[in-house]
Amino acid sequence: MHLHLAGHLAWYDAQKRAHLEIHLAEPTRLLTLLRQLGVPPEEIAIVVVNDAPVTLDARVCDTDRVELFPPVGGGSA
């Protein structure tokens, strides 16, 4: 499974990676997976699996492309 941790969600990966390859032996609930990875659900605004929006209750499998996006604030410096 390919996982994209957008924005500040990449911080929660121990190596601060935005893109990860994860092997899933069987279909897994996203919430369960996030708990294992240490990414807090309250920091996630949008979940997209294979280009379609889903909720954190969705199950994902090894061939899926999963993208997690944080809530986004102001964009100017």
Binding site: A6, G7, A45, F69, G75, S76
Partner: peptide, 12 residues
């Protein structure tokens, strides 16, 4: 930096 917002705003 702020360019990182492109992804997330597009998804939203």
């Amino acid at each position: 930096g702020t360019p990182g917002l492109m992804d997330s705003l597009n998804a939203a």
